[in-house]
Design a protein around this nucleic acid. Structure first.
Lengths: 236, 236
DNA sequence: TAGATTGTTAATCGATTAACAATC
DNA sequence: TAGATTGTTAATCGATTAACAATC
């Protein structure tokens, strides 16, 4: 084992195509990048309510962060507010989308069409937020050939062809932990740029591939830590 | 709005019932707590392979972190290794479980039995890792009364009674964003200690309640950031 | 102008990493 | 004893926060 680690919420100093005139390159810290989707969500909610302008106070409250942090985060993207006035909701939303790379719809392939894969394939939040599910893959012959969310489930062998034919740049792994690394390797080999895995397993990937891991049971275990009262381990 | 924010991956300086003799209280940093489930996973995998001893190098590689970080993290829990020898796999796993509060099985209620709620209710990884799903709730009369994963779905009104009757300490929100805050308030009112939400919305909760938020579309957007090549925004 | 709110600076705080003394 | 590996220290690094000068 000598490829890179997963679970790295932070992959170092990413650069960003210059939205500032001149194409100058700016660096957005990983912790900021991770909060941008939340800001975008809040901006869309404001826009839906008809708001034209917002302030760092208001937007921060909606996103659940402090206003100092919000302003600091936005400052990495550029200067999109007006002092004494605030931010133009629509314009700021657009800028955040540009930075996140959401001006083009990304294509997603889901591997593992069990309960979770099913749910993800049918999730409308993907389409709403810039992603198109363009392919479904499963290793189980009983599942292959069935139609889920309007797509016919393909066999595992079809994965590379599917990724290339559809131009998918993101793979989602919704298989059990046992199969996750094999699926991951296949996705990497097929050329995806990012992988979102729900399998409870650490994945090894080459450095040019980005992995994000969501482990539902781990989230519950972290919650359990804070609920550790009367667990029987008291002593004095 | 004057309750607290959500999305706080880190709720400050949690204390831990003293596993060290004397009941002395120790503090485990949030970032360390967040990695403990991964270590536990790796330890269980090692145990399943028959390993009796492991080293910080081996365990760290399995969990996808550096060995220095692993040792630092474990040092917050106590001194459970032997210099020159390594860690006893079974014993260390047990200690991590004690710290995470997994010696008692926690009871979980799921609200929102759509595609995702369905998948979560049926997810075997919960039972395997210390949690029992003891109640399902949905607002849709067409869903109420149906049986999912061996449980009859209850109406929203039944939530407080259900939480109390089952002694659930964790609530999972799998509803659309629009209903999330109402559900959250009801869970808090019913007395849960922690909430895991999949709804794309910031939740306000009182300070004694812990919230963790998983937003699948946000994860994809973060991946999209790293895939921001040829998005058309180049300038020079 | 007076009031408001940004963008940035500087201070603080927490997390990571490398190195090594302690010790099995 | 010699070799191995932990637990801890100290240095570095990055993230957060508060305060305020710039400016609308």
């Amino acid at each position: 084992m000598d490829t890179h680690r997963t679970t790295s919420r932070a992959r170092g100093g990413a650069t960003e195509p210059g939205t500032a005139r001149q194409g100058r390159t700016r660096t957005v810290p990983p912790s900021t990048v991770a909060r941008l989707p939340g800001y975008l969500r809040a901006l869309h909610a404001l826009a839906a309510e008809g708001a034209v302008l917002t302030s760092s106070d208001e937007l921060a409250a909606r996103a659940g962060v402090g206003s100092a942090q919000l302003r600091k985060d936005l400052s990495y993207l550029g200067s999109y507010g007006r002092r004494g006035v605030g931010y133009d909701v629509a314009h700021l939303a657009e800028q955040v989308e540009v930075v996140l790379g959401l001006t083009t719809q990304r294509r997603v392939v889901i591997v593992g069409i069990g309960n979770l894969g099913h749910a993800l394939a049918n999730y409308s939040g993907f389409a709403d937020r810039g992603f198109a599910v363009v392919g479904l893959v499963d290793a189980d012959p009983a599942v292959v050939g069935t139609t889920v969310a309007g797509l016919v489930v393909q066999p595992f062998d079809a994965l590379p062809g599917l990724v290339r034919a559809t131009g998918a740049s993101i793979g989602v792994i919704a298989t059990p932990a046992a199969g996750a690394q094999v699926v991951c390797d296949a996705l990497v080999e097929a050329g995806v740029a990012g992988i979102l895995t729900f399998a409870p397993a650490a994945l090894a990937v080459p450095p040019h591939v980005d992995v994000r891991a969501v482990d539902v049971a781990s989230e519950l275990q972290i919650l359990a830590f804070h609920d550790r009262r009367r667990t029987g381990t008291w002593e004095a």
